[in-house]
Design a protein around this nucleic acid. Sequence first.
DNA 1: TTATCTGCAAACGATTTGCGGCAGC
DNA 2: GCTGCCGCAAATCGTTTGCAGATAA
Lengths: 142, 142
Amino acid sequence: MAEKISLINDLKERGLRVTPQRAIILEAIEKLSGHITAEDIFALVQKSSPYISLATVYRTLDLLKELGLITESHMGTGTTHYALMTHGPHHHAVCRKCNRSIELPHDAFMPLVEKLHSEYNFIADANHVVILGWCQECQPED
Amino acid sequence: MAEKISLINDLKERGLRVTPQRAIILEAIEKLSGHITAEDIFALVQKSSPYISLATVYRTLDLLKELGLITESHMGTGTTHYALMTHGPHHHAVCRKCNRSIELPHDAFMPLVEKLHSEYNFIADANHVVILGWCQECQPED
DNA sequence: TTATCTGCAAACGATTTGCGGCAGC
DNA sequence: GCTGCCGCAAATCGTTTGCAGATAA
């Protein structure tokens, strides 16, 4: 319940303004959990205040990205998806068909991340990996 | 040396035409190894035949995608990257800084893919996963 | 010949930006 | 009141598409 306060405080601490638009957009992002697009946020935001523009949604998303509060991911489609960076690194398995997303714990990726480091000297930026595929209900039957 | 013939044969077998444009584009894709963009191909192709249009490059890429000869991946940027699907499923670790890409064997991902299946009943479409991060030479020193 | 390809230029969807006005601090 | 923010509309970027003419088979 007090979650959104922390987002707002983050803005204040950086000397950024807390405008009604930003507050509404932050609230919408929290309400829409999982992978959401700028349009998703825009659509929800419009219901409470129809005068908030799409450009502002994008500008706010940029801001949150810089503050490290959300992560961006690009799946098959041309549209960028965003997700709240609430509780440390986590990942998603996203269904190609129904778009449902399953949250995966970070440790599912640890062996891979460690292997990359030890064998390839590669530091994976595995804060939010997205794996595409098919969920239980949408699996090709053949 | 005879590699490109097989791509061309693939086209013929499906009753598709082997036009000079397609031959040139295929050659360019082979020459530019790793993750390439449509623009990369276009730029190279222009050198040998300036009259090939960008639309044709995109159309040929679509074709190769359908034939399963290339894979598409979306990294941080808005642009789509393509890679030749030469020898079965494989993956790439791509450096955020220098863009160098390290090819990873499929079995590095097997444990993860199996875990997704057994624990989440999720079938991962892990033909070509891209992991972003930093390579040995570009690692942040902090 | 004839269905498939091509080039061109216009359309497209997602995102960004310039600008004049507005409003948190 | 200053500075950062907003809404608007136009610009941009990557990609797709309609159409009429060209060409591989």
